[in-house]
C-alpha cells in the first residue's frame, strides 16, 4: 500500500499563485445544477405545443386522430357558446368539490383523533391502512349497489380517494412531532388545547400539505374514471360520447379542461402552502 505515495512529489504545487494576482485561488467547481431558468416550468410544454402546431400545419398529422390546436380551440368555443361545456364543467366541478370537501374533513378529523389518542389510534389507524390496501376504484360496483348510480356514489368514491392520502400524511406528521417539543410544552405548562394548537397542528402542517396535494390530484383522477363509466352528464360523459362519434377534438377539449382543473387546483394548494409555511422559507433559502 505504500507504493502509490511516490507519485505525489512530482506534481506542481497547486497553491503557487503569482504574487500580483490575489484572486488566483480557484473556486471549486459547483456541483449544483445552477440557477433556475426564467419560467422554466413552461419551456417544455411550450415546445411541445409548437411541435404539435407545426406538424398540424405541415399536414403531417391525421386530423381525425390528432386535430390541430386551433381546431381544438374552435371546438371549445363552440361547445362553450352552445351551453354544453359550461353545464358539464359545472357538474364535474360540483362532484369534485363535494367529494374533496368530505374527504378533506374526514382525513383531517380521523388523523387528529388517531394521532392524539392511543384509543383513537387503535380504532382508526388499522382500519384506514386496510382501506388503503383496497384499490378504491374497485369499490365502485359495491357502491353502485349500495348507493345507486346517482351522484351520491360518485361523491363517496371521490371522498375516499381524497381522504386516504390526507389521513396518511397528516397522521405520519402528527406522530413524528419532535419529542423535545412535547417536553418543552410540559415545561412551559401548556394546556392540552394549547399544546395541540401551538405545537401539534403547526408541526403537522407540512405533512398535511403533502397529503392535500395528493388528495387534490386524486379527486380529479377519481372524477375522470367515474364520469367515463357511469355518468349521464359531466366532462367525462362528454368525452365518452365524443368517442362514440369519433370526435377527437371534443375529447381533447375535455382533456384540456381536466388539465386546467388540475393545474389550477395544484397551484392554489401550493400558494396556500407557501403562505402558511412561510417560516420554512428561512430554512430552505
Amino acid at each position: 500500500m505504500a507504493t502509490t505515495t511516490t507519485t505525489t512529489s512530482t506534481a506542481p504545487a497547486p497553491t503557487a499563485a503569482p504574487p500580483g494576482a490575489p484572486d488566483a485561488r480557484r473556486r471549486r467547481r459547483s456541483l449544483s445544477p445552477g440557477r433556475r431558468l426564467p419560467a422554466s416550468r413552461l419551456i417544455g410544454p411550450a415546445l411541445l405545443l409548437v411541435l404539435w402546431a407545426s406538424a398540424s400545419a405541415a399536414g403531417r398529422l391525421d386530423p381525425g386522430a390528432v386535430p390541430a390546436p386551433w381546431t381544438v380551440l374552435e371546438t371549445a368555443g363552440r361547445l362553450w357558446t352552445d351551453g354544453t361545456l359550461p353545464t358539464d364543467v359545472l357538474t364535474s366541478l360540483r362532484r369534485a368539490a363535494a367529494g374533496f370537501a368530505i374527504g378533506l374533513t374526514a382525513g383531517v378529523v380521523l388523523a387528529l383523533v388517531s394521532g392524539l389518542s392511543r384509543v383513537g389510534e387503535a380504532l382508526i389507524d388499522g382500519s384506514v391502512q386496510l382501506n388503503r390496501a383496497i384499490p378504491t376504484l374497485g369499490l365502485i360496483p359495491l357502491f353502485i349497489l349500495w348507493l345507486g348510480i346517482g351522484e351520491t356514489f360518485k361523491i363517496a368514491i371521490i371522498a375516499i380517494v381524497v381522504y386516504i392520502p390526507i389521513y396518511l400524511n397528516t397522521h405520519a406528521a402528527l406522530s413524528g412531532i419532535d419529542h423535545r417539543f412535547v417536553e418543552l410544552a410540559e415545561v412551559q405548562g401548556l394546556s392540552r388545547l394549547r399544546f395541540v394548537r401551538q405545537i401539534v397542528i403547526p408541526g403537522a402542517l407540512p405533512g398535511f400539505f403533502v397529503g392535500l396535494r395528493l388528495g387534490v390530484t386524486g379527486s380529479w383522477l377519481g372524477l375522470v374514471v367515474l364520469e367515463q363509466i357511469n355518468a349521464t352528464s359531466g366532462l367525462g360523459y362528454l368525452m365518452f360520447q365524443a368517442q362514440n362519434y369519433g370526435q377527437s377534438d371534443v375529447i381533447l377539449v375535455g382533456l384540456l379542461v381536466y388539465g386546467v382543473f388540475g393545474l389550477v387546483s395544484d397551484s392554489a394548494v401550493r400558494l396556500i402552502e407557501r403562505r402558511v409555511l412561510s417560516w420554512r422559507r428561512t430554512l430552505s433559502s
Partner: peptide, 19 residues
C-alpha cells in the same frame, strides 16, 4: 435546554410568550 428549542413555526416573540 442545551438546544434553544424554539418552535420553528412561531416568531421569536411568540416563542418567548409560549405558555
Amino acid at each position: 435546554f442545551q438546544d434553544s428549542r424554539l418552535l420553528p413555526w412561531t416568531r421569536v416573540l411568540d416563542n418567548v410568550l409560549l405558555g
